[in-house]
Amino acid sequence: MANEKQDAKSARGAGPLPDLSGRTAVVTGANSGLGLVTARALAEAGAHVVLAVRDEERGKAAAARIDGSTEVRRLDLADLESVREFAAGWDGPLDLLINNAGVMMLPRRRTRDGFEMQFGTNHLGHFALTNLLLPHITDRVVTVASGAHRWPGADIRFDDLDRTADYSPTAAYAQSKLANLLFVLELQRRLTEAGSAVRAVAAHPGYAATNLQSHAGNPVMRALMLLGNRLFAQSDEAGAQPTLYAAVRDLPGASYVGPDGLGEMRGRPTLVGRSRAASDPGTARRLWEASEELTGVRFPAGALR
């Protein structure tokens, strides 16, 4: 526990975190892995951290492992009613929203609203949450993306976002991570156009050993990924550093942070590039419009800070 606390306080490659006393952060999926490390580091730097989790009991167990000011609130990103309830229950300013939660390479499943689970959770859930909370946000939105946005099959199929024609767990995951980066790109454009000082940035952890890989639906893929975690991956403490860097450093809007090592798999956090597909403003705008139609949630241009 002492080593974990030291890693969180120093934020490793992110450098020492500034004093965050008086600031409030929401971290989705904060009960384990990268989310827990991120929540712990922010709380130990003085922030009041809200662990936004699907399972409140697991969230409370995670919060008990954190030194600092925390609370646990229920949020199921695969259920838009839950997203709306979470946002409706928010009162007062919110300095930092970290869109961390996600699911990875699942067999074909659907959210409560009928969307493909990975696209619905990783993108649409966070899309709705961010827009509903934007009137409260004072500083920035950090969305955790992935190098998977470069994988084969990582395209936005506007005629089949649920990939019903030829579902592939890996392609569906890659699409959801590409959607994360396009979301950040278009969100920053809209914030700038509206004259808001809020920034939207993205980060990815490289290859970090977390429990996300253990939830992959294919047992062979799950076994290979767990083996890779043991042999090659960096720790979840190291994997959280790009997120923390993106959360506290003075970065331009739409920045993307990842590890500086070979293939961006591990290393110290730095600004990194993204694929051509993830940099296309036309696709980003089109995805935003489609996401508004699917979720019924719009950009609150007239209510921003």
Rank of each mutant, 00 (worst) to 15 (best):
Y173K: 05
Y173W: 15
Q175R: 11
S176H: 13
S176G: 11
S176N: 06
L178S: 03
A179I: 10
N180F: 01
L181V: 12
L181Q: 08
L182M: 06
F183I: 11
V184A: 09
L185T: 15
L185E: 13
Q188M: 05
Q188L: 08
R189Y: 06
R189D: 13
R190V: 04
T192P: 08
A194T: 11
G195D: 15
S196H: 04
S196L: 10
A197T: 15
R199L: 15
R199W: 03
A200W: 00
V201R: 00
A203V: 06
P205N: 08
Y207C: 09
A208E: 00
A209V: 00
A209T: 03
N211G: 13
N211V: 09
Q213E: 10
Q213S: 11
H215S: 14
H215G: 15
H215P: 07
A216D: 14
A216S: 13
G217E: 02
N218L: 08
N218P: 02
P219G: 09
M221H: 09
R222H: 04
R222N: 05
A223D: 13
A223N: 02
L227G: 13
N229P: 10
N229C: 10
F232Y: 13
A233N: 02
A233V: 01
A233H: 05
D236I: 06
G239D: 00
Q241N: 12
T243D: 07
L244A: 11
Y245V: 09
Y245W: 14
A246R: 01
A247Q: 06
L251Y: 01
G253Q: 03
G253N: 03
S255P: 06
Y256C: 08
Y256F: 14
D260K: 10
G261T: 08
G261F: 04
L262Q: 14
G263V: 04
G263A: 13
G263F: 07
M265R: 15
R266I: 04
L271N: 07
L271D: 09
V272Y: 01
G273P: 12
G273W: 09
R274C: 12
D280V: 13
P281K: 11
T283L: 12
T283R: 13
A284F: 01
R285P: 01
L287D: 02
